[in-house]
Design a protein around this nucleic acid. Structure first.
Lengths: 140, 140
DNA sequence: GTTTAAAAAGTGTATATACACAACAATGAA
DNA sequence: TTCATTGTTGTGTATATACACTTTTTAAAC
């Protein structure tokens, strides 16, 4: 009977869905999505990234990242030099992309603050730490 | 600099991805996916469900559930009576579906056990409790 | 130098997710 | 009866996710 609520995968996915919707409700007004913000934020940190580096940094499957970059490139927020089968690619954020980051950051902060209000800062910190620890151990 | 790792949404999604991959690695051999197992498990608990009831129980957007049921119905694991625009639908698991549940449950247990090993049972319990609490408060 | 292995990127396919919208049914009010 | 409201379901569209596979380059082995 209590088997379903006991599934860690299911529960984690469910909470991730709920929280994603919360962030997206804020970010939508700025024409951006919760998956895209960390990509643009990562691109701000460096001159450029290769596909493999960026996917490693984001903890995102490389082939997933390939598709996730498409709307961003289409909208001119990022660009890529090189690339294609076997050819290394340089991915970088454009000026327009940086401007977008400036514009959506307040909305991101609002969403983040609303979530933190639910449990408190320390509790979320410790919670994410534990999840991070679990993730690391799974990967080995 | 530490802005990216501080995003709760991003980190939660990332861990959810990793754990989902872990479950799927086990479940794949049984021809089922991590999203589908809780659906079939829920259907085992009742004679039938309406679309709205089931989506509410699973904490899944109703329109998402509509699409997620399709492969299950195509493969004969579930069936539906009624339905269509505006017409209530009765969703229920088939004999084949129940057999599938029996067959994938060991794989599910294996995956679950591997995850629990990473942090311990009590820690996962408390972690999911806190996530649940946060999710509830967000919904209000 | 050729062959082989490893590294890097992209594609095919299938599922997952959800907002905006549409279609229809049932019920109660005018 | 007709009309408006509410509840139930499905569709259009777009993004997210990842495994299996392919293509190409580079580097190492021989």
């Amino acid at each position: 009977m209590a088997q379903l609520p006991n599934c860690i995968c299911f529960n984690l996915r469910r909470v991730a869905r709920i929280i994603t919707q919360e962030y997206d409700a804020e970010l939508r007004q700025r024409g951006i999505r919760s998956t895209q913000t960390p990509i643009l934020q990562a691109l701000c940190r460096r001159e450029w990234w290769s596909m493999a580096e960026l996917s490693e940094w984001l903890g995102m499957d490389r082939t997933t990242l390939v598709r996730n970059l498409r709307p961003l490139e289409r909208d001119g927020l990022i660009e890529s030099k090189g690339g294609g089968h076997g050819v290394p690619v340089e991915i970088f954020i454009t000026a327009k992309g940086r401007k977008h980051v400036e514009e959506f950051t307040p909305a991101w902060r609002t969403a983040q603050a609303r979530i933190i209000d639910t449990l408190g800062d320390e509790q979320w910190s410790s919670l994410l730490d534990q999840l991070e620890k679990a993730a690391e151990r799974i990967r080995k």
